[in-house]
Design a protein around this nucleic acid. Sequence first.
DNA 1: ACCAAAAAGTTGACATATCAACTTTTTGGA
DNA 2: TCCAAAAAGTTGATATGTCAACTTTTTGGT
Lengths: 161, 161
Amino acid sequence: MSDKLDIIRHREGHEVLDYDRYLQHLISVIANRLTSYSSSQYLSQFGLGSVEMRVLASLAYKPNQKAAEVCSLISIDKAAASRAMAKLDSQNLLIGETATPKGKQKRWSLSEKGWALHQRFLDVVLDRHERVVKEIDESELVQFVGTLHKLIKNIETLDTE
Amino acid sequence: MSDKLDIIRHREGHEVLDYDRYLQHLISVIANRLTSYSSSQYLSQFGLGSVEMRVLASLAYKPNQKAAEVCSLISIDKAAASRAMAKLDSQNLLIGETATPKGKQKRWSLSEKGWALHQRFLDVVLDRHERVVKEIDESELVQFVGTLHKLIKNIETLDTE
DNA sequence: ACCAAAAAGTTGACATATCAACTTTTTGGA
DNA sequence: TCCAAAAAGTTGATATGTCAACTTTTTGGT
């Protein structure tokens, strides 16, 4: 048991959570707000939700990927990816190429239309990001991102201990 | 336009998101994993979900609160709070007291049974927290929490600009 | 005390995230 | 080449988070 950054306070004889220090709470509040706000931006501006836009962005980042590789890159469930890619494909935002002429499974990339949407998406992402990190200087952000990566590493082993 | 901690990379003539630096992505991955893992812990151990447990914990932190005050403290929607409190109350985990004998709206606190469950909840929270922050030292966590609070402040004004 | 307005709470709907079960496709050994 | 096993993908279900519409309760002015 470590006493570093104690997340327990005492109140009238009871132990209670200290919300101001409880990482999971703080992180979840931020993530929920960001996801919700982004989703409403994407839906109103592009007619697609945040899942679809994240998949699209992942295929810009790394084209010619299988569905499973998209899942791995952006930490999304294969069920969500399946539905999102079906929707993107139905709107001709993707190009799917099979390894052989008779193959069924495809590697996906963005179509022209997909790339055009991706550029508009980036504009929205950057504008929002600027507002989110406003008045936080670069060195602090670098440190912060470093800690996020450490947390992700710890979280990967959560259910194996 | 600021160039601090650029979240855009260039790849084959295209601008793409740099996932390793894109805060929203990193934060969401952590929050989703933590919420999902916590929820399964609470459901299997207590038969209640994370929404119910968060409301319970908030009434430990600050007893004798109205539903709206619970919402404000833990940043939860009043719809979710309404459903969670109905469930907690149905299991006799709460005590509700009206301001006057004929009043209808109640201020909520934990019952004996509620406090007992809260103690078990804290054990689970602390165990998980230890694993999440493993090998990250206190000064780094203090800095990290400071940045989280700055982000929360920025996020509060997201839709007003 | 009454009533209109405000606040609080409830209910239904939908987006996101995840799991489990099932189907389809691919892979690799005989 | 054939087939069993593995991998990949699809579909349905459920938990969380949020919004909007509606109902109930409280508040405050007369």
